[in-house]
């Protein structure tokens, strides 16, 4: 009995390790395969045909990819700038001032995060079709995508900045007031400098979300008609055996870009911690 028990316990212990190892393999297996295949010499993306950099060469000469990349970067930069501004202001407002219907407004500010993305995407599609176009006529797809991205990013920036603001020792702002600073001076000289790391992480999050977004972009352009960001470009390549191999290269590079962004985020976080 005792031996059986001990045996069972040992089994649980080794299963714990085994599961953990398997999960990590599971997480990195497809990424590894993807990168490997991006160096394939085959004419087809899904077939291995020996090592080559041909896919990368083709990628860099592809006009459609370049255009999609440009669109992605423009939308991400613009939506990040706007969402960071709006989100930070909202966070400050929610945490530092009082207003009527505050609770309702708070719920409204959080909703874009919690409702399924597809619902928000559908709502934007209908809004553009039923309100924006009838009122303003033809609207450029880039603008509709931008509006969509800002809308979900605002909430994320707000959450990140607000969390830091809540942790911020209130007495720091009081000390500044006590030393004669006006509320505006307090904001400029104390609150904002202390919030900078949080605002930067919020912005980075917004940027990543925008680059990554599929649902809102897809619906905001009613199915990607003409205007393509990188994810839309990837989606539109009917995935069959004949996918051109430079898609592997593109996917690998997108992966690398994400990694670079995270590295940047971590670096900034490290720096923020050091200066505290």
């Amino acid at each position: 009995m005792g031996r059986l028990r001990r045996g069972l316990d040992a089994l649980i212990g080794s299963m714990l390790v085994l599961d953990t190892v398997l999960v990590y393999i599971f997480l990195y297996l497809p990424i590894g395969v993807l990168i490997l295949y991006s160096f394939s010499a085959s004419r087809y993306a899904l077939v291995w045909g020996g090592f080559s950099l041909e896919a990368y060469r083709r990628l860099f000469t592809d006009r459609d990819v370049a255009l999609a990349l440009l669109n992605s970067v423009i939308v991400a930069s613009a939506s990040t700038a706007l969402a960071t501004l709006l989100g930070t202001m909202l966070a400050l407002a929610l945490e530092r001032t009082r207003i009527r219907f505050q609770q309702g407004i708070e719920v409204l500010a959080y909703l874009p995060i919690v409702i399924p993305e597809i619902v928000m995407a559908v709502g934007l599609l209908l809004f553009f079709a039923q309100v924006l176009r009838p009122v303003f006529g033809a609207v450029s797809p880039m603008l509709t995508v931008l509006i969509g991205h800002v809308t979900f990013s605002v909430s994320y920036v707000m959450v990140v900045v607000r969390a830091r603001l809540r942790d911020l020792d209130r007495s720091l702002e009081e000390a500044a007031l006590d030393l004669g600073a006006t509320p505006w001076q307090v904001l400029r000289k104390v609150t904002l400098p202390l919030l900078t790391p949080a605002i930067m992480s919020g912005a980075l999050l917004a940027f990543t979300l925008s680059l990554d977004d599929f649902y809102v972009t897809y619906f905001s352009t009613t199915g990607g008609s003409g205007f393509k960001t990188l994810p839309l470009y990837l989606y539109a390549l009917q995935w069959r055996a004949a996918v051109p191999p430079h898609v592997n290269a593109l996917a690998s590079l997108m992966l690398l870009a994400s990694l670079a962004l995270i590295a940047l985020a971590l670096l900034m976080q490290r720096k923020a911690q050091l200066s505290r």
Partner: peptide, 20 residues
């Protein structure tokens, strides 16, 4: 009168030194 216009200064329990 708002705090910034009062001729009194406070030493906070947590010191409230500006970390930046």
């Amino acid at each position: 009168i708002p705090p910034q216009e009062r001729d009194v200064n406070l030493v906070f329990q947590s010191y409230a030194l500006f970390p930046h």
